[in-house]
Nucleic acid binder design. Sequence first.
RNA 1: GCCGGAGUGGCGGAAUUGGCAGACGCACAGGACUUAAAAUCCUGCGAUCUUCAUCGAUCGUACCGGUUCGACCCCGGUCUUCGGCACCA
Length: 823
Amino acid sequence: MLERYDFAEIEKKWQKSWEDQETFKTVEDESKEKYYVLEMFPYPSGKLHMGHVRNYSIGDVIARFKTMNNFNVLHPMGWDSFGLPAENAAIKNGIHPNLWTWANIDEMRSQLKELGLSYDWSREVATCHPDYYKWMQWIFVQFFKKGLAYKKENPVNWCPSCQTVLANEQVVDGGCERCGTLVGKKELSQWYFKITDYADRLLDNLDNLDGWPNKVKIMQKNWIGRSIGAEVDFDIVGFDKKMKIFTTRPDTLYGVTYMVLAPEHPFVNELVSGSEKEAEIKAFNEKLHQMSDIERTSTTLEKEGVFTGRYCINPLNNKEVPIFIANYVLMDYGTGAIMAVPAHDQRDFDFAVKYNLEIIPVVETNDPNIDMLNLKEAFIAEGNMINSDKFNGMNNKVAIAKFIEYLEENKIGKKSINYRLRDWLISRQRYWGTPIPMIHCDKCGWVPEKEENLPVLLPTDVEFTGKGESPLTTSKTFGETACPECGGLAHRELDTMDTFLDSSWYFLRYTDPKNQEKAWDFKNQKYWMNVDQYIGGVEHAILHLMYSRFFQMALYDLGFVSNEEPFKNLLTQGMVIKDGKKMSKSIGNVVSPDLIISKYGADTARLFILFASPPEKELDWSDAGVEGSFRFLNRVHRLVYELSAIVPAAPKTYILETEADKNLAYVMNGTVKKVSEDVGGRFNFNTAISSIMELVNEMYKYKEGDDINLGLLKVCVENLVLILSPFTPHICEEMWQHLGNNESVYKTNWPVYDEEALIKDTVEIVIQVNGKVKEKLNITNNLDKSTFERIVMENEKVMAIISGKDVIKIIAVPNKLINIVVK
RNA sequence: GCCGGAGUGGCGGAAUUGGCAGACGCACAGGACUUAAAAUCCUGCGAUCUUCAUCGAUCGUACCGGUUCGACCCCGGUCUUCGGCACCA
């Protein structure tokens, strides 16, 4: 250890030492309690940005803290390395995605290593490696066999300018991410996962995820969007099929004055074909098809529709009501058909007013401001039933169940649950993804590739044009194959998987990353799972975190894993933004940690980003203040260097003699306690760091004093280095070694604090008069209440303030405060 | 429109259970050391008033009101802002 803080030298030295000693390698060890800490693995875009630094610094502090607290910690890292940017680079620069990706991985891996993160690199995985995607394909086959994967024709996002399909995430404000052209729809046959089968479990299990932020649970809940209601069958006059509708308000059935079909509803053609309405309906539908999804589903779009000329019969009162098609009813929710109750639904109300349709109230209020016979807007609040035959007088909430009962008894409907959640479209017309291991045979239909033939390797003889269909169609070697079932000529699926699949189970592969026989050994996953602490950006609150939960549940049902939920505790870090905007390559506001690391070192970078703000909060990046973190580390370095000349020889035991001793022991033990709680409990790294700063300030003050207690100082220095080490590991290793220790600070036990030292002889109490602070007093700790009150009331200043006034009340909080209420 | 956060000095932020608002750090100002600079150290740093200075007083946690001996914290309302969802029947 030099007198000067040579961070570059120190960081290089210890990174090499950790690598040589395999300090962070983890093996299963039944004798120890395990702790699995995981940060969301990155897409290898090429360069680390400050958001990554924040994410991995948080995880590293937790991993190191848990290790020092004697847990067997699994802390892995890998690459979510399939994805579109690699392919775009190929189109633009002619580099093969494989080369581009691996070059980026190498670059980012070395950047991560420069940060001194405690990863077990022997467990590294990359989703684009055949060793990984082989098992991705295997999982797909298991899902297919269980009936969780199916293929169907459906409209998908299509950019007419780029001539390609876009993922939902690639549609930004209704336009193509790359060229901005309005995205349309195209019918394509696609693979889906039946995530809707798990809707109830995904929703209900949220209640048990105590370690998850509420915000994320609410977002998932809204996304799943469970609505409980009823399905009702309406007869159509002169038509042999029934019109099935879904409603959450069966209590309003007597208020139905018209019906609406979605324009795409399969009945529409049959109902109007050959009638005088046919041309009008066709024209209306064509107009709708010209619209983008965004326009079409905008709440501000005026409600429009066309009467079909046909009628329905309300099964409750046999009333005939007209059937419309309208732009506000969507084919892909519920049954694509609704009963309209304008009195109690605002959309129906708007439509009824426009087309002059009847409005019949069936729920009444006693609010004098609302005229039920002349409504200005739909009445959606609670009330009592009217105009509803035998249901009249009932509270409408109660009536819902009665109506459902009635529907079921008379076989005209039943209770029904609908979800906003749709099945997961997993096909992508892309090259750089996992090939879907399915083969189509004219005789046998869709057949999975035999498991012993996995992986289905991505072919390399592929052209990248960015136009047209999946690039795999251009391969001369890939498409044709033999049917695994009958051996006849068959064709491979040419689409690849959505990359969200790859990231939905990587946490399982980490538990057994090198296994060539299985995706993972049951025993290994049983030892390590669940992930005890998952850390990542709040932007993944819905997609990644719900897909992973779905995978885990499906794999649980298949018997491959031992838990239904993958992530026990979740920490969603806030985004690191710059100038009010999310850091992104296209805006050009990405801040790389390189400059800070070369100027101040990785320890400073880590310390600064954790000190700047609590982790969940959004952080507007500014490097003002980096100097302060660097200054602090210099200050620590100087202090330890100076004291290392005198403390190593001192005994580890000490007796507190002076007031200064007691004070320092109080601060030191308090700091150990606070850091333990802030890091181990509530993840407030910023306050943990500030309390360490206070300890350092206190130690500087103490060592300038007259009587120096070397034993106490020794413990202070050692504890300081230990509790700082999860934040800034390199400098702490260096100081720890210099203090005469041979073992890595990482392998050293976290210090315990002395509860006794936290009990003070005297405490400062606050004296308030009428709630205003008037005086502060040092009194003996733990005085009984009456003595405490007497001392305060006999205080000269207090007596002066209250003299001549009536004391009405005295509120005394022992060891803290006393409030004298006077008049 | 619906749901969920957030709003504290010039700035990042602290106040963990209703009990001293502004910890810690940044920036700034003054001083010490130095031939000088850097580094380091010391002091000050919410606003207003008062005072030679101290001492002190009043106000102050987006805004209005309430509960309480006491409110950044609890309750009612308003505004601003961020995030999610959005003709979901």
